[in-house]
Nucleic acid binder design. Structure first.
Ligand code: FES
Ligand code: FES
Lengths: 155, 155
DNA sequence: GGATAGGGGACCATTCTGGTCCGGTAAATA
DNA sequence: TATTTACCGGACCAGAATGGTCCCCTATCC
């Protein structure tokens, strides 16, 4: 179905929650859990991951928690997926040489690279800041891409 | 990792192989297996799937096989993924209402729809015909999308 | 009728995913 | 210093998805 994993989704929801706070706000796992309704262990796990990916900074001990390391405007969705899912590679082949037996005699390889870059480009167009308020019109995506392509609506 | 499944990949490789033949050419599963080096059962399975998706037409009995139903130029990659993976919906939420508990109070939903459409748009830009010969320059993708976005290279 | 080839589906091993839990350590505070 | 708070690292597990095989049935050609 070409979908991102649930965990990744959670991670992004958490990030977005941070982005909605005043810059530099520190929140701990329990608070985040309450804010999002997600089970604490999951929240905790994801926050760790995000901290490891240099997206959040962690502060240990009492009064500790996490806070955003970068301005929401400076974080692209592509980066998020990169951190949470370990890159965007539609097929094994796109991840680099040596991943596919029949790299030779395969004429599909190069075009897929282009497709992959295209998708990646689309993901780079949206920033974390834009995920936080629906009113921020980033319809530039729609403009850039849907020149002629018919709706074919999200499925 | 945001990847399409291996089976889907196979399916597309098969399609591409058909597209490389003169229009209307009929090939059977065994021939395709030999041509691609993929195990026969797998090829067979995928060809069935593709036929079910109205992308290939099947011909039973001796001298039977499969042939493309539509001109390669008229088939977009988005359609392929649609047929092989059952749609493109980055998150459950994008697949429509009722898929996510917290549709209410979730501010991430609407922007994700945009992202999803953007990716979909990118996939609609490439046709099966372009998958067959690397020399067919469909760099329009690169032009359309990478206006400013830096390489960030396929990973 | 015999050979060929697709159609449908069951089936299985292995991996991936979503989610939990726990013992350790760093920091704040009293 | 003792206590409490909270992150850190990683083990762990049940269930689902994935990749792949097999088999019997039906249609077609010669
Ligand atoms: S290089 Fe892997 S399928 Fe073409
Ligand atoms: S609607 Fe599902 S996470 Fe927002």
């Amino acid at each position: 179905m070409l979908r991102i994993s649930k965990l990744t989704d959670y991670g992004i929801v958490l990030l977005a929650r941070f982005a909605a706070e005043p810059p530099g706000t520190t929140l701990n796992a329990r608070e985040m859990s309450e804010a999002t309704g997600l089970p604490l262990p999951v929240v905790s796990k994801m926050l760790k991951t995000l901290a490891g990916a240099e997206l959040l900074r962690s502060q240990r001990g009492a009064k500790g928690g996490y806070h955003l390391m970068r301005a929401p405007e400076a974080v692209t969705v592509a980066e998020l997926l990169d951190a949470l899912e370990g890159g965007v590679a539609l097929m094994d082949c796109t991840a680099g040489p040596g991943h596919c037996e029949q790299e030779q005699n395969c004429n599909v390889r190069e075009p897929w690279q282009r497709i992959n870059r295209a998708v990646l480009g689309a993901l780079e167009t949206v920033t974390l800041a834009e995920l936080v308020q629906p009113n921020t019109p980033s319809n530039l995506i729609d403009i850039q891409l849907r020149a002629d392509a018919p709706p074919s609506d999200a499925r």
